[in-house]
């Protein structure tokens, strides 16, 4: 998000129409509050917090690790501590001060090597390192991705445009308990002498999940169509 320079530009265009979905969202929320399932205050506090989240801190963590071997060691050893340096406090940063139903306080940073490529999934639901990476993309939440990536990882990665040679081990990290994961990829060639800002720009959300590798010049996630699951496993 480029909210820092918002005030320099005229206001962005708005949708001047209330859709049925917008009404439904508000209606569901208000009824849930009226029925005592949660309070407006808790919802406000949480929503406000969620608005502050995005993939930038994780991208910065990776860029810093590429530039500073000591920081890299810390990141791999203690992701929670390393997160502090990019402004993410896994414990006290959240409104609850201890984590949430789906955001526990254990970040593990998975270091790729030229012969090891990590990719993250949550086969059971859709656990995601939200405090440092923001909201998960829809494809990450779909049964299609969750069921197939542990079963046919190379096919799924190929659908993202990532074909890996046989001598590279693909390691699928199934996020099923209290750790959350981001991938620390190999720094690509052609980035010699780059600053932390320049490096952080090519560390996209998809790179941090592990379905893409960083490339100079590529600063956005590829569009991914969401398909129905085929050959589903389990559930």
């Amino acid at each position: 998000m480029s909210d820092h320079d918002d005030h320099l530009h005229p206001p962005a265009p708005m949708v001047d129409e209330v859709s049925e979905f917008e009404v439904l969202e508000l209606a569901v929320r208000e009824l849930a509050i009226e029925k005592g399932l949660f309070t407006q205050e808790d919802h406000d506090r949480w929503t406000e917090y969620m608005h502050t989240l995005g993939p930038l801190p994780a991208a910065r963590l990776v860029a810093k690790a590429w530039l500073d071997p000591e920081y890299k060691e810390l990141a791999v050893k203690d992701g929670v501590k390393a997160s502090l340096e990019v402004g993410v406090d896994w414990v006290s940063g959240m409104p609850t001060q201890f984590g949430t139903p789906s955001d526990y306080c254990n970040l593990r940073v998975l270091e790729d090597t030229p012969t090891l490529k990590h990719v993250v999934v949550c086969t059971l639901c859709s656990c995601y390192p939200r405090p440092i990476l923001g909201q998960s993309p829809e494809w990450y939440r779909t049964p299609n991705y969750r069921r197939r990536i542990v079963r046919w990882p190379r096919q799924v990665l190929a659908e993202f445009g990532l074909q890996l040679p046989e001598d590279v081990e693909v390691r699928v990290e199934d996020s099923n308990q209290k750790s959350r994961f981001i991938v620390l990829p190999v720094r690509p060639e052609g980035t010699e002498g780059w600053s932390e800002d320049q490096l952080a720009e090519i560390v996209t959300r998809d790179v941090l999940i592990g379905v893409a590798v960083p490339k100079p010049g590529v600063t956005a996630n590829a569009k991914r169509p969401v398909r129905k699951a085929v050959n589903p496993y389990g559930h």
């Binding site: 969202e25 569901v28 929320r29 849930a32 399932l37 949660f38 808790d42 919802h43 949480w46 929503t47 969620m50 949430t100 139903p101 789906s102 909201q135």
Partner: peptide
């Protein structure tokens, strides 16, 4: 998203 979290 927040509603889903609060429900949880």
């Amino acid at each position: 998203e927040s509603t889903c979290d609060q429900l949880a």
